[in-house]
Design a protein around this nucleic acid. Structure first.
Length: 207
DNA sequence: AAAAGTACCAACCGCTTTTGC
DNA sequence: AGCAAAAGCGGTTGGTACTTT
């Protein structure tokens, strides 16, 4: 049986009070983010270190943006999720002032549903069978170094970008009427993972 | 006006990874 | 190299606010 992360008897749980927040802020301003396990006692808090860290990282940090997500932020989350999956900390790292928890919550409550309504499977970012060929849409392919925009059906209806992340996706490309492939600004993602299907994408785009 | 349903998000839990000895 | 402790991460839960019936 795994030991609890810390001794929890006598510790507070649940929502943080204003006083607790202030104690943590004051302590970290004075001493910085040292050892989380020792912070509660040093700061005079009846919380475990883990809870303190979470409260600071997700809510109290001064560099947090808060508020609604902008369209550009949502686009970026969708793009990054297609590439990285549920790697929330990596995704949040690309969104200044946003936390992994915030990004995860926003994905689960807004973006996931939005994609599903568009007929896109939010888990793999692929169009569902029924919608694939019947709705005009704009597809965006992203690799480490390149992005490719593609309109399907040539009708200019504005759809948010769709990302494909599987080696089997070029099948979609060959089955649809590509009217235009154009380069869009590089995202400078600096990602280390490789996407094998991009080789065939390059062939499609240059032929 | 009240009850039921839904949406949102802060916080927790437990597993994995990293760090220090 | 191996172990334990600490930190980090992602999934899930629970409370609250809002909306619908």
């Amino acid at each position: 049986m795994r030991k609890p992360c810390c001794e929890k008897e006598g510790k507070n749980k649940g929502a943080w009070s204003k006083q607790e927040d202030q104690k943590l802020i004051d302590y970290i301003r004075k001493h910085g983010e040292g050892c989380w396990r020792s912070i509660p006692e040093a700061a005079g808090l009846l919380r475990c270190g883990k809870s303190c860290r979470l409260r600071w990282v997700n809510y109290l940090r001064p560099d947090l943006k808060r508020g609604n997500f902008g369209e550009d932020e949502e686009d970026l989350i969708i793009k990054l999720h297609a590439l990285l999956g549920n790697r929330w900390s990596l995704i949040a790292g690309r969104l200044p002032g946003r936390t992994d928890n915030e990004v995860k919550n926003h994905w689960n409550t807004h973006l996931k549903r939005r994609l599903a309504q568009m007929g896109i499977d939010p888990d793999n970012h692929r169009l569902g069978r029924r919608t694939r060929l019947t709705r005009p849409s704009k597809l965006l392919f992203v690799s480490n170094n390149h992005t490719y925009n593609k309109e399907v059906n040539s009708q200019a209806e504005e759809f948010p970008v769709v990302l494909l992340n599987s080696a089997t996706d070029p099948e979609i490309i060959s089955n649809t009427n590509i009217s235009m492939i154009s380069s869009v600004p590089d995202l400078n993602l600096d990602l280390t993972i490789g996407l094998p299907f991009m080789e065939s994408m390059n062939q499609v785009c240059t032929s």
